[in-house]
């Protein structure tokens, strides 16, 4: 990564952290309902991979922990926050919610709430790309626990059989909801599992964005060049519970402390400070500005936006006025 890019992406990751932490507060204030899964601690994964990709050109999809992937793909943070606040100005008009952020225009193909559900969908988007002959790829971010679903195996198999341009990024945060990976998964190193499908893979530190970026470059080059799928495992950690309803009682303070010391923002910040690219004061200044922007701009927008109108209740169940429902345009 170029120094200017590192600086920019550090600021973006700081924004992501503050965005998610503000969501936490809004949830406690009951401004956000339903389930809320926060990304704090895992930022280098989405930012590292998508820095190496072409957001807006490449297709991106993920699980229910989706706010930040959407924002990095180009969905407006205001539209994401308004969606969380269930407002009509939300990216999905208040019909989706935290787990279902979409940005079709930005080719952010959605957040999905069934663990592992996106595996075949991403392969399908890749099939579509291949049929149409474009140079896009599909990038699918999912957690380690998704790999224990049947569609993980089914999708990897098909992706390899048909050499589909799909990159599966495994954000391995060591826990499937509240169960540690060793207790649920026979092979703990997830990258090894895809060897069964003859798919190239790598496992790297997901807390150091430069490491992620370099590994993602290799992965993306492979996929974009038409050589078929790739599986990239990023070792990471989420600071919050699986969702807001999670007591987080299954992890030790020692483990949390260990991962806090490997905070992805701090790693990059300290490196850039050490290299003289930024100063600590500059970073603090960004933080102040970001907090103010989130409060004065984004939260305000979400707060002040209107509730969805009642006509939205059944507007998007089926296509509107599809002529083929009547047997064609008559």
């Amino acid at each position: 990564m170029k120094p200017a890019d590192k600086k920019r992406v550090l600021k973006e990751m700081l924004f992501a952290r503050r965005f998610e932490e503000r969501c936490y507060e809004a949830y406690v204030e009951r401004k956000i309902g339903g389930f809320l899964h926060l990304y704090s601690g895992e930022e280098a994964c989405a930012y590292g991979v998508l820095e190496a990709a072409k957001p807006g050109h490449d297709y991106v999809m993920t699980s229910y922990r989706d706010h930040i992937h959407a924002i990095k793909s180009g969905v407006s943070p205001k539209a994401v926050m308004a969606e969380l606040f269930a407002k009509e100005t939300g990216c999905c008009k208040g019909l989706g919610g935290s787990m279902h952020i979409f940005g079709a225009e930005q080719r952010f193909m959605g957040g999905y709430a069934l663990v592992g559900g996106p595996f075949p969908l991403a392969a399908g988007i890749a099939k579509g790309i291949k049929l149409k002959g474009g140079d896009e790829i599909c990038i699918c971010f999912l957690g380690d626990a998704a790999n224990n679903q049947g569609v993980f195996h089914e999708s990897l198999n098909m992706a390899k059989v048909w050499d589909l341009p799909v990159l599966y990024v495994c954000e391995n945060n060591l826990y499937g909801i509240g169960t540690r990976i060793e207790r649920s998964t026979a092979v703990v190193d997830q990258y090894k599992r895809v060897g069964a499908y003859d798919i190239p893979s790598a496992q790297v530190d997901g807390q150091d964005i430069e490491t992620v970026y370099d590994a993602a470059k290799i992965a993306i080059d492979h996929v974009r060049s038409g050589k078929g799928p790739y599986f990239l495992e990023l070792m990471t950690y989420r600071y919050r519970g699986h969702s807001m309803s999670d007591s987080n009682a299954y992890r030790t303070k020692e483990e949390e402390q260990l991962w806090n010391e490997r905070d992805p923002l701090n790693i990059l910040r300290d490196r850039l400070v050490g290299a003289g690219e930024i100063t600590v004061d500059e970073y603090k200044q960004w933080d102040t500005e970001i907090i103010a922007e989130i409060e004065d701009d984004i939260i305000k927008f979400a707060e002040e936006s209107p509730e969805p109108s009642a006509e939205l209740l059944d507007k998007y169940v089926l296509a509107e006025n599809d002529p083929w429902v009547r047997g064609g345009a008559k």
């Binding site: 392969a123 579509g128 098909m158």
Partner: peptide, 26 residues
């Protein structure tokens, strides 16, 4: 074979793949 696809016996997988492809115009 690109348009008439013999799938593996993976109903959840290939149905999901078809659905994903339909998102992008297929």
């Amino acid at each position: 074979p690109e348009r008439v696809i013999d799938t593996p016996i993976s109903e959840g997988g290939y149905t999901g793949l078809g659905i994903g492809a339909s998102f992008v115009g297929v």
